[in-house]
């Protein structure tokens, strides 16, 4: 082995091995190495600019290639808006009825209070085999490992690793992600997990559903609040199809995530949340008014 008699080769190889081992171990622990933190902070403005340029390029090409699809989607959305307006009117009526009944029976209404930090997606994982997003918020902004990340549409994922001014987020479509959820309409619960094959189509799946007969395509899936990461009631997605699993005698549903992962640019990180009585909140607000 003449190669190992070369002093430069041996020293450089040793340094490369140390760097590889240290970075891997710290990454698995969910802790950013000081080098990783500093580099992430230095590169932050450049990555932000590059992300903007890349998003602009993607949008520019989509302008020419996706015209027909967008026109079709537009007409579909118009139909959906009309339908949702009707549902909103129904929901408002039901909310009023609900409030009246709560008052009549003396029930307490619970409200979830959030503390949110807004963030911009500045990076996506460089290898392509795993979708992980980098956000421009880190430990300086109070971000910790295990915090939930949401978009305007629904649940995005959870914080996997934090640096000084950045953090990495694992989306719900990833195989390493799992969250407790239930069907909004029927209350049927299950576990929403990522799947490598479904991820390519921008989907995830809901497993361990015991009563699959009560499920139908179009049902809304929301977080159940179990697990401690995601608060209950956050929109996860919509059921696309339900298939029985003959081995476990349970059902598996394919979920279309509520969050638009293809065009994800702005998200919110839930730094803390608490469940309070709605009456107390109103009372506090009234007290603070002049």
């Amino acid at each position: 082995m003449r190669l190992f008699k070369n002093k430069f080769f041996v020293i450089a190889l040793a340094i490369a091995l140390v760097l590889t081992t240290c970075t891997t171990v710290l990454s698995v622990m969910g802790v950013a190495s000081p080098l990783r933190s500093v580099l992430g902070a230095v590169a932050l403005p450049f990555r932000w600019c590059a992300a903007k340029v890349a998003q602009g390029l993607a949008g520019f090409s989509a302008y020419f290639t996706e015209f027909d699809r967008l026109r079709e989607e537009n007409s579909e959305l118009s139909r959906e808006v009309a339908e949702l307006r009707q549902r909103l009117a129904d929901a408002e009526r039901m909310a009023e009825e609900n409030a009246a009944l709560r008052e009549f029976f003396g029930l307490e209404s619970l409200e979830v209070e959030w503390e949110l930090v807004d963030a911009v997606v500045i990076g996506r994982e460089a290898g392509g085999y795993m979708a992980v997003y980098t956000l421009n918020r880190g430990s300086l902004h109070g971000i910790e490992r295990g915090m939930a990340v949401v978009s305007a549409d629904g649940v995005v994922g959870y914080v996997k690793e934090t640096g000084i001014s950045w953090c990495k987020v694992v989306p719900i479509t990833e195989t390493t992600s799992a969250l407790g959820a239930h069907i909004e309409k029927s209350g049927i619960s299950g576990l929403v997990v990522g799947d490598f094959e479904l991820r390519d189509r921008g989907r995830c799946k809901m497993t361990y559903i015991e009563n699959g007969e009560g499920l139908s395509p179009g049902d809304f899936v929301v977080t159940s609040g179990t697990g401690g990461i995601y608060p209950a009631g956050l929109p996860v997605g919509v059921v696309e199809e339900v298939v029985p699993d003959p081995l476990s005698r349970t059902y598996t549903a394919t979920i279309i995530p509520a969050a638009d992962f293809d065009n994800l640019t702005r998200v919110m990180i839930i730094t803390s949340y608490s469940i309070t009585k709605a009456d107390e909140t109103q009372h506090t607000e009234e007290e603070s008014l002049p």
């Binding site: 450089a12 340094i15 490369a16 091995l17 760097l19 590889t20 970075t23 891997t24 990454s27 698995v28 190495s33 080098l35 990783r36 580099l39 992430g40 590169a43 990555r47 990076g123 994982e125 460089a126 290898g127 795993m130 992980v132 980098t134 990495k168």
Partner: peptide, 21 residues
């Protein structure tokens, strides 16, 4: 290669950091 690999993994790596090597 070693320095750039370390920086690449620092910015984009997820699990195993093989880029420096």
């Amino acid at each position: 290669g070693m320095v750039a690999g370390t920086a690449l993994d620092a910015l984009g790596g997820v699990s195993l950091s093989l880029a420096p090597l």
